[in-house]
Nucleic acid binder design. Structure first.
Lengths: 237, 237
DNA sequence: TTAGCAAAGTGTATTTTTTACACAATTGCT
DNA sequence: AGCAATTGTGTAAAAAATACACTTTGCTAA
């Protein structure tokens, strides 16, 4: 076969015998109790009973891939306007017991506080990313790949803010980085770096109801960031 | 729909009506005349006549995605054992005139000298990556995305060597980085950096038939690299 | 009210990494 | 023999990353 094969069918269609079931799987990350969490559902496949799986669904032939991923996210979390990124496509012949199902993996970052307001499905649970041994299908591999991609991307793009409320303290921000990168950072150097980038806006509010000196709250200024992306300094403590 | 839908069909199959044609497209990079090149074929679709397209084909339902990509590469270049990496999956509803065809993009890096020995198809041509305006389908977008991924990855992994013969001079190596990253680098600092990493093996040979002082030739020591990956220093001149 | 706790906030010195830069040596060519 | 082209080499300056400790603030509980 060669790519003329596609060409031949221009006026007809790709032979139906060559079609393959396509799904999307969403790795939904959240941040709570200073841990990076992932939203999973209890698998109801007999084969995988008691295992957890990612949130996914078959892609409709008339549906964009990204739309399918957003649809699932919306369905499961009630959330809109969420950071989402394609990770990789997994297509092992035997990855799904129902036959050949190729899946396109996405990860997304949500503010878990928002989500808590709308728990739609009590088979859904947040799991500590580092505390997951086995999963259904090849979902552990998908999760691992997504997590690695997140670790890489968070060092070069302002993703951490998607996991936090609009107002956050520097400590919370640092906690996100420490949770994702699984490291400890120096508080002073962390602050220095972020203030030097100059994308944080001091909103003149303080943390409330903390049993110690409250920290200042900040916003992330996305539009300023868009204008001077160049100035983003790698977070690689 | 929810992911129970997949579950329901465990013992049957994903409904055939939901299946989608799946293809792979290969972005095959080579390095020649100090330029980064990409191997394209003249599209024979009427709609895209006179446009160039990537090398691709439909994925057989019983074929792994990676295998399909390797199959195309082998067919078109005669080459085996080539560096290849999945880039992203493109699935716009109208990206292909034959109907819904979702395509998984791969890029690969080959030593163009090897390939020259086996030009199998005279509709194939090497194009300067920066000298491509329009392409068939959404292939320009796929090429751009792949090129950007290559630019990112080459700074963190020893990919450049895949574009060169086994024996190469430091000047050739630097030329690869300069071509991919589209920059000029300082020769002394470049040499310093690579020698510090200590993965180059001086094979005690010199360039032949150059009209000036010949440079030393080196191998890249992959096994040493595998052992101490940590020591790879980002190439970000 | 006050003492103690917990975390916020802050600056400097040291080390490491990156960058800038110029001249002698080698080979092929005429 | 001299020229052209490119290799090979070291050091100093600048920039970035790291290490590190004390004072301040607000809350809590005696």
């Amino acid at each position: 076969m060669s790519n003329e094969k596609i060409a031949d069918v221009t006026r007809t269609e790709v032979k139906s015998i060559n079609r393959i079931a396509l799904s999307v799987d969403c790795v939904i990350f959240g941040f709570d109790e200073n841990q990076l969490k992932v939203l999973l559902i209890r698998s109801d496949l007999k084969k995988f009973k008691e295992k957890w799986s990612l949130l996914g669904d078959i892609v409709n032939p008339k549906e964009e891939l990204d739309s399918a991923a957003y649809r699932i996210l919306k369905q499961r979390t009630g959330l809109d306007n969420v950071y989402m990124e394609q990770v990789k496509t997994f297509g092992s012949l035997n990855r799904h017991p129902a036959g050949r199902v190729v899946t396109v993996a996405y990860y997304s970052l949500i503010n878990i506080q928002n989500h808590k307001l709308k728990i739609l499905d009590n088979e859904l649970h947040w799991h500590d990313v580092h505390d997951i041994a086995e999963m259904a299908f090849d979902h552990k591999e998908i999760l691992d790949t997504s997590f690695e991609q997140l670790q890489r991307r968070v060092q070069e793009h302002p993703l951490a803010f998607s996991l936090l409320p609009k107002k956050f303290s520097l400590r919370e921000l640092q906690n996100v980085y420490e949770a994702i990168l699984n490291t400890k950072m120096d508080r002073r150097n962390f602050r220095k770096k972020f203030f030097a980038m100059d994308f944080l806006v001091d909103i003149n509010e303080m943390e409330q109801e903390v049993p110690h000196r409250p920290g200042k709250l900040y916003n992330f200024n996305y539009s300023k960031y868009e204008k001077k992306k160049k100035k983003w300094v790698g977070i690689d403590f």
